[in-house]
Design a protein around this nucleic acid. Structure first.
Length: 623
RNA sequence: GCCGAUGUAGCUCAAUUGGCAGAGCAAUGCUCUUGUAAAGCAUGGGUUAUGGGUUCGAGUCCCAUCAUCGGCUCCA
């Protein structure tokens, strides 16, 4: 797929009107990849070249280094990176021109005679397959095979490049890391060695980028989650199984309260279901045929096999089927913060963003087909309401559809239903002017979906919320309702999880707010700081008063000085600090210091209580 | 799961070619009674991830396992 966020997803590119592919920076990065490949070939003459495209923030190139004397795959060492980078700078300084030429298929094959991956790419080009950028060839256009050459290095390449290596800013490049990557992104293919580099128009731009990475590390939810005591992992509990600390539990509960309010307003009813079920249920649902790879293995008792649930839907379907349903009670919207377990591969785990136990903001909407549009839109609107509350403005709606080659394997084998439901979703989106990108071959096994994509502090892309159409499970569970004609009719099911899972949502929110939660979400909302021991009782009284007003407030009665107590509260990112001494005690006031450093002295206690309770009640983003 | 790297006190990090495991912060105790981001003194804290091996001697070298990190694959 062509990356819709190719430049920077969000800030930093004011001149975003020019497509990334047409910018000078793109040519610089692409050219840097070629220069790197030359340097690698000089160091490892036997290396086989795969592909080396520009990417967001830089470029990479994939190599197959073959095997060593013992038959083990050869890999790059961190020292190699330094050598390669040094050599790249020499090549850049030598200012070799890039020369473009078109070659016919015969010559191309001869040119890359001992480059098997290039041969495969040439074959692909001739067959009109997607090129190295994943772009489908235009059926009408004739196949053009071209190369770019600089110094001793010639690569199969469409370009574009800079005029000569000297146009690559020698101080603007840096090799970042080595990684394994499968040839053509397929895990059945051999693993290649990938070197990632970054490239910028100048030394200062590079430094700025490195600085930005540094800052991103500061807001990484794994770091803040530890510092703010939100969650922890324990080796003995297991990887991907987070433990919510008291502060994290507060945030999770606030999110649940929000969800309950919102869902009540939108006509949902709540249900609760067990964490495991008999094997038969998951056969029925299609999970065992299509999803078993992500499920924990079964446990057996008295000859019956049970699975821990990877999703809540089958249970909700059983609730729908618990009695006969009438069209009069549809759409039926069943909601549950359900706890699910998925066996994510060990290398896929990532802090809170990718875990093995998760609580989903789940709901299933059973609707007659003719009410689908209305229900679907209501769900989208609920997303937008939530995003407004959290000030989430950097996201992307991704419409995932099936691909015919996956029918019966990745997707249930109902081609006409796929076509029909996908068209329904597309129509709703277009008709309501909701911006989205369509991505083929990314659907759920039971139907098309809309995912909301967001980015973690480290730049990794995640699906935050999801909204999926399901035409498969109603059929496999034989779900029906009696329509106005008195006939049995099958509903469509909408799966939706606008608040994601607690794990991913809170991981995201930590980074989104850099730990500075709005008052309503902050685990500790107010800290009262007495100046000396004589003010302890007054501090306790104020904290007590706030507590009774439903505010999460604590008095810091520790032995530290006021200055250090303020520092500690700042480090924990407590929104409000109330400093109290003689002046406040006499006047019945507090000195309010906000987390941002602003200060309001001599504020009457009543006034502060009114302020904080108003912020909480309205879920105000303001401090 | 795959490729690579890393693992020392609650946290951040030291420890020369293999030669007595240390510091700051945090914690605990005592003193100080303080006005908007760090008071002072003292004390405790470690089977150096786990299990093997090499060696007179291993945090350091080797092997295996576990976990984490950067990617790939996959995904809420």
């Amino acid at each position: 797929m062509s990356n819709p966020n190719a430049g920077q997803p969000g800030e930093g590119q004011a001149e975003a009107f020019v497509p990334y592919e047409e910018t000078e920076l793109y040519r610089i990065r692409h050219s840097a990849a070629h220069v790197m490949a030359q340097a690698v070939l000089e160091l490892y003459p036997e290396a086989k070249l795969a592909i080396g495209p520009p990417i967001e923030n830089g470029f990479y190139y994939d190599f197959d280094l073959g095997t060593d004397e013992n038959g083990n795959p050869r890999t790059f060492t961190p020292e190699d990176l330094e050598k390669i980078e040094q050599r790249m700078k020499e090549i850049i300084r030598a200012d070799y021109p890039f020369e473009y030429r078109v070659v016919d298929a015969e010559e191309a094959k001869r040119l890359f005679a001992n480059q098997p991956y290039k041969q495969e790419l040439i074959e692909g080009l001739l067959k009109g397959e997607a090129d190295e950028y994943g772009e489908e060839a235009d059926d009408e256009a004739e196949v053009v095979i071209s190369t770019y050459k600089h110094d001793t290095f010639e690569d199969l390449c469409r370009g574009p490049h800079v005029k000569s290596t000297g146009e690559i800013p020698v101080d603007g490049i840096k090799l970042m890391s080595v990684a394994g990557a499968y040839w053509r992104g397929d895990e059945n293919n051999p693993m290649l060695q990938r070197i990632y580099g970054t490239a910028w128009p100048s030394k200062s731009a590079l430094e700025q980028y490195l600085q930005m990475l540094e800052e991103a590390r500061e807001r990484d939810h794994r770091k803040l989650g530890r510092e703010l005591e939100i969650f922890t992992f324990d080796e003995e509990v297991g990887p991907g199984l987070p433990l919510w600390l008291p502060n994290g539990a507060v945030i999770a509960e606030e999110l649940e309260n929000l969800a309950k309010e919102m869902e009540r307003k939108h006509g949902y009813v709540r249900v609760r279901t067990p964490h495991l079920a008999k094997e038969d249920l998951f056969y029925h649902s299609g999970h065992l045929p299509y999803y078993a790879g992500s499920m924990y293995p079964p446990m057996e008792m008295e000859g019956t096999r049970y699975y821990v649930k990877p999703m809540n839907c089958p249970m909700h379907h059983k609730i729908f089927a618990a009695r006969q349903r009438s069209y009069r009670e549809l759409p039926l919207r069943l909601a549950e913060y359900g706890t699910c377990y998925r066996y994510e591969k060990s290398g896929e785990l990532f802090g809170l963003m990718r875990v093995r136990s998760m609580q989903m903001n789940d709901a299933h909407i059973y609707t007659p087909v003719d009410l689908f549009e209305q229900e679907f839109l209501d769900v989208i609107n609920m997303y937008l309401e939530y995003f407004q509350i959290f000030n989430i403005d950097r996201y992307m709606m991704r419409f995932s559809t099936h691909h015919r080659k996956g029918l019966g394997k990745k997707y249930v084998n109902k081609p006409e239903l796929w076509q029909r439901t996908e068209q329904m979703v597309r129509d709703v989106l277009v008709k309501n002017n909701i911006p989205f990108v369509e991505v083929p071959d990314e659907a759920a096994f039971y139907g098309p979906k809309i995912d909301v994509q967001i980015w973690s502090a480290t730049g990794r892309e995640f699906t935050l919320a999801t909204n999926q159409v399901d035409f498969a499970q109603p059929a496999s569970f034989n779900l029906t309702f009696v329509n106005s004609e008195g006939e049995d009719e099958m509903p469509l099911v909408l799966h939706r999880a606008p608040l994601s899972t607690h794990e991913r949502m809170i991981g995201f929110l930590i980074e989104h707010y850099a730990g500075n939660f709005p008052v309503w979400l902050a685990p500790e909302q107010v800290r009262v700081i007495p100046i000396t021991d004589q003010h302890r009782e007054y501090a306790v009284n104020i904290a007590d008063r706030l507590f009774k007003a439903g505010v999460r407030a604590e008095a810091d009665l520790g032995p530290d000085r006021m200055g250090n107590k303020i520092r500690q509260a700042q480090l924990k990112k407590v929104p409000y600090m109330l400093v109290v001494g003689d002046r406040e005690m006499e006047a019945g006031t507090v000195s309010l210091r906000k987390r941002d450093g602003t200060q309001i002295n001599a504020m009457p206690v009543d006034e502060f209580v009114a302020l904080v309770t108003e912020r909480i009640a309205t879920r105000s983003p303001e401090l």
